[in-house]
């Protein structure tokens, strides 16, 4: 399995209010894992885990940003937020707070 099980164990299902991004970040090796917002311009990485509230995570994954996908930072909006990403040839926009919940490696 490519996607990560342990990072997403939540005490209360369906967990609309959980914030796995924090636990996912804390438990990970800071050498290899980063959040999506930490990518440099044009840098590419592999999505490791998608966190955040359930509905939001579902939407982000539906857009193609699912664990195992390759993602590249394209640009920042003129006002600083949101960010634009390239996910296997498809352009997505995410607010910084949403991107902060996504853990990438590589």
């Amino acid at each position: 399995m490519i996607w990560d099980k342990e990072a997403f164990i939540s005490e209360s299902y369906p967990g609309l209010d959980r914030a796995p991004e924090e636990s996912a970040l804390r438990e990970r090796d800071p050498e290899t894992m980063r959040c999506l917002t930490e990518l440099a311009m044009n840098e590419e990485a592999l999505v490791h885990a998608v966190g955040g509230p359930h509905l939001r995570a579902r939407r982000i994954m539906a857009l193609g940003l699912s664990p195992g996908a390759r993602v590249r930072m394209v640009r920042r909006a003129p006002l600083g937020d949101p960010l634009e990403f390239d996910v296997s040839g498809c352009l997505l926009m995410l607010r910084c707070e949403e991107a902060a919940g996504i853990v990438v490696e590589g």
Partner: peptide, 11 residues
């Protein structure tokens, strides 16, 4: 809105 504001920038 729970779904957030993530969206596609279509070609």
């Amino acid at each position: 809105s729970e779904a957030g504001s993530a969206m596609e920038l279509p070609p």
